[in-house]
């Protein structure tokens, strides 16, 4: 397994992206940003289509540009319209998917590409992707840890954070940028449709296993790592698509955590007078 260069690249991508997705997921779930990450992921389809249409052999840069454009368009629309965020997200998600599919339809011989991006493909992780994923993941992990207190307070109460002297708008912008970059890069591994689960499920699993935020953060990091690596290996060994394998491993961890929590709360109930 480890002698195949493509498999090694995929495993390294899993090691880079799984933990940082878990870490981001703690704030994504608490700040109700799952639909946002879903929209950013779907907008990457338009990025892939445009990249290939423009003749790029590797559409990663085009994906990043389109995803970031959609993320910032959302922030702008939220500030300048009175529409609900959910409405804006639905609008941007469907429009970017429609645009992506229309551009794809004009490309000859690329129809099979859509599925690779929708569900992830370990074969699609190239050396340049790996370098970008490694650099971005390490950078964002450090940034998240550096901003941890500020992000926690913003999550608890934005006005309280502002009054405490935290530059809420800049940190919010930085978090949006970090989330967009990681979601777009993780698409290679997990696919557009399933990438949000790599953010949400480790954080939810970690919540079941933890009593406080420190435990939740460490657990989410570990569950993200174990799911991404375990799923990638299962995908190789069982010849399953990569994204669904990672999500199924992740969901298994969640089920186990749920059982542990139920058993734990059950034993507490028994102890209660």
């Amino acid at each position: 397994m480890f002698t195949d260069a493509f498999m090694l690249r995929a495993l390294l991508a899993a090691v880079f992206l799984g933990p940082v997705c878990g870490l981001l997921g703690v704030f994504v779930t608490a700040r109700r940003l799952a639909f946002f990450s879903d929209t950013v992921a779907h907008s990457a389809l338009a990025g892939v289509a445009f990249g290939l249409w423009l003749g790029a052999s590797d559409p990663t840069v085009a994906m990043l540009i389109v995803s970031l454009a959609v993320a910032f368009l959302l922030l702008w629309l939220r500030r300048h319209t009175e529409l609900l965020t959910d409405t804006l997200l639905a609008l941007l998600l469907s429009t970017s998917v429609a645009l992506g599919v229309v551009v794809f339809s004009q490309l000859k011989g690329y129809r099979g590409e859509i599925e690779r991006y929708l569900f992830g493909d370990i074969l699609s992780v190239g050396s340049s992707d790996l370098m970008i994923a490694g650099g971005v993941s390490v950078g964002i992990t450090f940034l998240l840890l550096h901003w941890f207190n500020s992000l926690t307070l913003i999550t608890a109460h934005e006005d309280l954070a502002h009054v405490s002297g935290i530059p809420v708008r800049w940190i919010d912008l930085g978090f949006t940028l970090a989330l967009t970059l990681i979601v777009t890069l993780a698409i290679r591994l997990v696919g557009i449709i399933l990438v949000t689960s790599l953010l949400v499920i480790p954080a939810a699993t970690a919540r079941n296993l933890s009593q406080n935020l420190r435990q939740q953060t460490i657990s989410a990091w570990l569950v993200g790592l174990a799911s991404a690596v375990g799923g990638t290996m299962a995908s190789y060994g069982l010849n399953f698509p990569c994204g669904p394998s990672i999500v199924l491993v992740c969901a298994t961890f969640f089920l186990i955590s749920l059982l542990i929590r139920k058993m734990h709360s059950g034993s507490h109930e028994l102890e209660a007078p």
């Binding site: 779930t29 608490a30 999550t155 608890a156 109460h157 970690a206 933890s210 406080n212 435990q215």
Partner: peptide
């Protein structure tokens, strides 16, 4: 606070 139960902050 604006927190929901998915956030483990003690």
């Amino acid at each position: 606070l604006e927190l929901d139960r998915s956030f483990g902050l003690s």
